[in-house]
Design a protein around this nucleic acid. Structure first.
Lengths: 222, 222
DNA sequence: TGTATCGAATACACTGATGTATCCCAGAGA
DNA sequence: TCTCTGGGATACATCAGTGTATTCGATACA
């Protein structure tokens, strides 16, 4: 009897199988959304790519948009974690070859690369931003994520800057926001230029510009 | 007879009526594309908004995309012209109240506002950029326009900077590219924040940040 | 006033996507 | 081995969008 009462609750315990299916659908959606955009992507394209039929999709998600949000959430979470881990991995290196004004820009670039790792993510994120510009609810969650990420990053970068005896001439958050902007549009420009080859020649321009920019935005401490 | 031969050429002389129809369709498309995005917009939404039926559309354009490109071309042309005129209108003012380091940032902001005047254009342009990131041919024309505009702007701003006895610490084109980036993302952020009200509270953030940024990116001449 | 022409409106045939009701199978548990 | 349930597959009904062949109406010109 008690067991029956227990089974009455509609058992949405996310079975392992179900989770796997959802993940495969998200993986496929990631590719399709990057290639064709969210509005142009059909449910069938996604399920076909994932090796399912449309029935599987509707068993796991209500709408294409719901899948998109789930995907964005998963990817954002992954990147926040990667930032944490990545910074922790880079810091020990600096004990051996301590940070100087000359290497500061490179380290900043490496931090940034932890977030925008590939072309597809850059495109999908643009799509999300565009959606947000049209939809206040989406905008709220977009801004929340961006600001969280920026705050994390700003802490780390500000530390690095101070450790070489410099400080930002603007508010640190503002300055680092600018740096992130420059990095991201360098990435976008790389995509625009290399559209034909789908290689990930992401950061050369950023690597060239960032050090100079960082030094323009900083001054000696005190 | 000669007149008949003349009429043989298929008379695509862009009658005034036809031009007006095309313009009304573009106006309507501007709104619809901004509201729903290009892929989600249907031909019928556009023609309905313009007060025509779908027949009129197919008499003037082959596809929705063709209309989109025509619209982008028209708007880009308008903004390039506006930049020319706008700068010429601002310069005389400066004879009365000469440019100083303090007012430099404001003048730069005013230049920039000549381009990104309203919310809808910002959104439509993002849409165009996204399309370009997926399509090399579109990318080429996108980059061409952006670079043309940047070059124009850079000339004017560099003059202004030198006229107050400063110069950019980075390559002028690079520095001004950064400034444009910062301005544009300030605009986007304003949209993201004010999504509910559709007012055009575009530049307050930019107005606050730009002067400091400009002074960070410049140093005394010589 | 009549007519010829240009361009917008209408109607229709066709495609492709969506959502859902139903079916069926594999695997867990007794 | 049998059964039962969760979850993916199938099939169908619906609908929106597209493109085109054709019709209609207004304006220019005689």
């Amino acid at each position: 009897m008690p067991s029956e009462i227990a089974t009455v609750e509609p058992a949405q315990i996310e079975s392992a199988r179900r989770r796997k299916t959802r993940d495969r659908l998200m993986d496929a959606a990631y590719e399709v959304f990057a290639e064709t955009g969210v509005p142009a992507a059909s449910v069938e394209m996604i399920t076909e790519r994932a090796g399912f039929t449309r029935g599987a999709f509707y068993s796991n998600f209500d709408t294409k948009e719901e899948l998109f949000f789930a995907l964005a959430e998963r990817e954002n979470r992954i990147r926040l974690e990667r930032l944490q881990e990545g910074v922790d991995a880079i810091l020990p290196e600096l004990d051996q070859a301590p940070l100087t004004e000359a290497t500061l820009g490179d380290v900043v670039a490496r931090f940034l690369e932890l977030q925008s790792d590939d072309q597809r993510w850059c495109i999908v994120q643009s799509e999300f931003k565009l959606l947000a510009m049209r939809n206040p609810a989406v905008a709220a969650s977009y801004l929340a994520y961006q600001r969280g990420f920026l705050a994390q990053l700003a802490d780390r970068i500000d530390d690095a800057v101070r450790s070489v005896g410099l400080r930002f001439t603007l508010e640190p958050i503002t300055a680092i926001g600018i740096i992130v902007n420059v990095y991201e549009s360098a990435l976008q420009e790389a995509i625009l230029e290399g559209s034909d080859s789908d290689s990930i020649s992401a950061p050369p321009m950023a690597r060239a510009t960032l050090p100079a920019l960082v030094s323009s935005l900083t001054e000696p401490l005190g």
